[in-house]
Write a protein that binds this DNA or RNA. Structure first.
Lengths: 244, 244
DNA sequence: GCGGCGACTTGATCCAAGTCACTGTCACGC
DNA sequence: GCGTGACAGTGACTTGGATCAAGTCGCCGC
């Protein structure tokens, strides 16, 4: 995932209209004047560095954030001090959707590498969504997707199913963003993966090792190569296949 | 949970304006003319009976549904034929939010008892949401809540934490609806509870028994009496308490 | 190039919850 | 009443993944 120059020169270069994430992000389906109006309220922020927080639990909710470059993890810390990783967020994905209801952030968002975001002040975004049908429906679509994705994750699946689903999910997201779906760098540590999948880090290590032994993948530290995507998909079929 | 008369006489009696769920459901915060416009697009449907499907996986998405009376469970069936219960839905809650993105229903919705719903044709609702700020923000709030709720459920919690959270969650939802927060009837079987919480039905039985022994609750079949709500809340604190 | 530290792997043991098998209980039809 | 079948509870056992305890590897600072 590439990083951006620190300065905000070249307004045009950064505009939604020419952003490579246009079709995944809020501008999807918008054209000319509508796109410009959206562009006007976007505040580009960053670059932030690994370990920087974009927001924290309890912060007043003022804006949604679209990841522009880099990646984020969202997480909470429970009353016993245990961390719970809620998700990883790639460019084009929205952060902060869960904060709309209570008006305060319910989770923390932390940069996993050098990252930039587009801040979308919520009041203004909501007004604009009132006026632009396409924007409103895209916001609803993205929220709907979040609801559906979270529901899938909740099942009682084995360590293998979970990791296979994690890898194929990442693969698909990289593909959509124009990166290789079979070779990529993980932005997150084993500990974060384990926490996200509700496994012990040791279990993640062991399943990675098993997958390598079975010639499904090769892994070298954070570099992953998916050798047999179809078979990986079969492994986690139960997590995604839904029928009547 | 009360049932409604079969006929749809008394349009006024059924109007959003006088609905007891107004403050939980879409009309929240709307007044006079706006409320009437929402009312105009609502199609009251039912009564449906235990075991009836409101929609099924793959059905074209045309409308959101607000539960009016009774209760629903939403579930999927995976490629191996295993059922996965995604949630239980009480009056005032919305069904079908996950279908907006793909335009098709991703889960099945089944009545657990005699139930009625308000159908909200999505195109019209979206148009209206464009024109009424309050409606738009309430839809966003309800979707946001769904995102946050699902995230909480996903953690790696013990059988006790899960069941305690389930019971206190139901308690709170009954309270909001004007029912007793300490004495209620479960609309769902042990099997459904177990499936929802990702436990075996035997485990649910055993934890119910343990809770009874510890004087936290009494259970007789589907009649539950919460004796020590504070202690139940402590049990599942980790599932809900979130801090920086 | 050495020391130290954090990230990861590997192996040995443990335990919460699942599975299996059986029993009890209620509801409904005949 | 008496079967039948769905649902619920209980005990014995099995097991996947957690936990505990050493390692190994790579990297950064000095």
């Amino acid at each position: 995932m590439s990083t951006l120059p620190a300065d905000v020169s070249g307004r045009l270069r950064e505009a939604c209209a020419v952003c490579s994430l246009k079709e995944l992000c809020l501008p999807r389906g918008l054209n000319g004047p509508d796109l410009e109006r959206l562009d006007d309220l976007v505040e580009r922020q960053g670059p932030f560095h690994e370990g920087d927080h974009l927001f924290r639990v309890g912060d007043r909710f003022q804006a949604l954030f679209a990841v522009r470059a880099g990646s984020y993890k969202s997480y909470t810390v429970d009353s016993e001090g245990r961390e719970h990783v809620l998700g990883f967020h790639l460019p084009g994905e929205l952060l902060g959707l869960d904060a709309i209801y209570p008006g305060r952030h319910l989770c923390n968002a932390l940069a996993l590498d050098t990252a930039t975001v587009c801040a979308l002040p919520y009041e203004q975004l909501s007004d604009l969504a009132g006026r632009i049908n396409g924007l409103r429906s895209q916001i609803m679509r993205l929220m709907s997707k979040d609801i559906a994705d979270n529901a899938t994750l909740a099942g009682d699946f084995t360590a293998e199913e979970r990791l296979a689903a994690f890898l194929t999910g990442l693969s698909e997201r990289f593909r959509q963003r124009g990166y290789s779906p079979t070779e990529f760098q993980l932005a997150m540590s084993r500990r974060d993966i384990a926490n996200y999948l509700r496994l012990a880090t040791e279990t993640v290590s062991r399943v990675f090792a098993r997958f390598e032994k079975d010639r499904l993948i090769t892994v070298d530290r954070r570099a992953v190569h998916l050798l047999d995507l179809p078979r990986l998909r079969t492994l986690c079929a139960a997590m995604n296949d839904r029928q009547s």
